[in-house]
Design a protein around this nucleic acid. Sequence first.
DNA 1: GTCTTTCACCTGTACTCAAT
DNA 2: ATTGAGTACAGGTGAAAGAC
Length: 373
Amino acid sequence: MTKRTAWKEVSLGEFCEFKYGKSLPAKERVAGAYPVYGSNGQVDTHISPLSDGPTVIIGRKGSLGEVAYSTTSCWPIDTTYYVDSSATHVDLRWLYYRLRSLGLTELNRAAAVPGLSRSDAYRKRLLLPPIEQQQEIVRLLDRVDALRARRRAATALLDDLTQSIFLDMFGSPFTNPKEWPTSRLGDLGELDRGVSKHRPRNDPKLLGGPYPLIQTGDVANSGGYITSFSSTYSEMGLLQSKMWPSGTLCITIAANIAKVGILEFDACFPDSVVGFTADKSMSQYVRVWLLLVQESIERLAPESAQKNINLQILRGLPVPRPPDELIAAFAERVTATRVVAERSQRQVAELDDLFRSVQDRAFRGELWEDRGV
DNA sequence: GTCTTTCACCTGTACTCAAT
DNA sequence: ATTGAGTACAGGTGAAAGAC
């Protein structure tokens, strides 16, 4: 006898009710013990709850079909649906995991604002296990999820580690407690703007060739090292631009201010990115220094519709200038942490795969059949 | 050619409306 | 009152366009 035989295929609407969230404008909220949920997760707190006990929150407008879980009573606002213990008999944590993989996001009615209709959601069919197995699935998924969260946290710590190494070796770049002489950023290496001469800049003739083209977003989201690109220049695109060598430190100066990443391949970039070229150790040193001072540079940018910072300001920034040997030693340590960080990131990816695979098999009931119970 | 500003677009929240 | 769907708007992003 397989336990699976006790599993019934049912529609979502047969065993739970999606209740409507209730509007709670920001100015009416009073910070308190109960989380306030929007369609894309927690947005605030309030002194009183709407739901009763643990609650599953489902995005109704905007981020439709996104699913969140609150361990306590909470306030889901009117752009969400919610399910608490008064709206279903199933294990709420199981329901949370189950809804996340049910594909509710695909039920977009394609209206002006993406929206999830309750009746569409109710029609979704799925296997409903008995309560004991719901709880067993939850224990299993919670364990894998916790592993995943721990590994993610460790990976995030490694990002901070490079900044800690800097502070440890050189002290704060703001107070310069070790009294290093200072240089101007422009004197530590070559600092120049990217080039995109042709008008219009997005002329199709320029795009779609063999030469990687980096945009500000690529730098801002690089995590310090630019390993991939999303668009390319043609021969004509290259002619009106400039190819920067692998190892160039890219610094954004528009929209995203002073975000940094080291190029890992030869690439072009437009004039909203500047390139800093120096030897490897110096580039690494300047990269981490910029991470530490990014926010204060951003404050230097004029408060207009879109923030900007120009090359003069950037070139003139004072940078503590420790001896070359120390900078080389620093770069070596940072490079070593990167090896660990990459391994850590791979483990996060593997745990994501494991989670998906365990989840899929658990929801199909295969974990029990396999054991031949 | 370089730098700054504008604008289109996206997402999500607050509020409103019409049909039932 | 409930439900599905719309408008208005805030805030953010990044490319296009304008100004010098």
